[in-house]
Design a binder for these strands. Sequence first.
DNA 1: GACTATACGGAGACAGTCTCCGGTTTGTCA
DNA 2: TGACAAACCGGAGACTGTCTCCGTATAGTC
Lengths: 191, 191
Amino acid sequence: MGTTTTAPTRPLRADAKRNYDAIVRVASEAFSANGTQTSLDDIACKAGVGPGTLYRHFPNRDCLIAAALHDSLGELERASEHLAASDDPGAALETWLFQLATHLRTYGGLPDSVAQAFRTESSPLRTSCVPLRTITATLLERAQQAGAVRADASAGDVFALISSLAWAADQRGDSDDDLRRMLALITTGLR
Amino acid sequence: MGTTTTAPTRPLRADAKRNYDAIVRVASEAFSANGTQTSLDDIACKAGVGPGTLYRHFPNRDCLIAAALHDSLGELERASEHLAASDDPGAALETWLFQLATHLRTYGGLPDSVAQAFRTESSPLRTSCVPLRTITATLLERAQQAGAVRADASAGDVFALISSLAWAADQRGDSDDDLRRMLALITTGLR
DNA sequence: GACTATACGGAGACAGTCTCCGGTTTGTCA
DNA sequence: TGACAAACCGGAGACTGTCTCCGTATAGTC
């Protein structure tokens, strides 16, 4: 289920792989510290490579974000398999929505990056995140079949709602508890 | 209730006022067409002034956005007074939330600009938008007293929720109907 | 050890932000 | 009306970040 960000037809040369790994590692740290809008030249510099090397491996910011997220995304997807097998689809969905929102907060600015990626056909970040939408759709459907969630809620809307929740939490610098409270507000409604 | 973006101790000179107005007019058009991230030098150029003139009147982007929004914001505030006098506080709140979300979509990227402004103590855009939060608090309280809305929802959370809704709608290019549907999802809850 | 495909990385083009300051214009007062 | 000071203009350019080009270096192979 792990998605590859690039399609390496042949293995990278030793020095190339070394640089690739260094860039991804540094990028992940930099994104964590300063958000997805961190200067890419800065990342290249800190990784000990020239900008040309960074842009050869990652033609644009989305590629680098996707690569930096690769591992944690895989974990999230694996965890979701467990939820899909739960015998309480309503609770499973709620757990998933929280995990999803939390994941979208891995880096500052990530909700924006992901939303923009979904508007760009060829974005590798979009490719990486499509499974998240699919999982949401699956778990939502199960919850609806179990009668735990209203039937007229669409997966697209729910995914957008959770993305926007992550965005708000990101903007306000919310804690996990804040996020949970806001999520509860959505699931149970204002009324 | 109209908020002033700058405090003109004395009236502007004729040429200064001419330029000021031209910049605001062009900026409003440019923000409508290309979002709040439009190049400011571009706006200056289209308004027929140099960048120095633009930055003297509007030291940063937020100042210009606030000025461009000034009129429509005043209208929105006036309309809210009517809602505050409604004898159906629940419906009044819902109407307000929709108007608020719609207003936050005046320009592409506006939800981001506003959210960032709220994190910047001195931002004039923040000053412009504080009344929106106040109005939301007032109408929410009335709806809660009328029993139309759960009592544990805070004004801060509701404002954040509506901002994030506007953000999502902005990102997806949603229609008003889409926005209304998403808002209904929030007010009535997923369950 | 030599050769070639692969990869490196710095110089620099380009775009956007924002400032500084020499020159111009407006409003005022005689 | 003419002259003067305060107010204002706007272009040149410093600065930052993005992204590319291409001469140079290196890994892998024979």
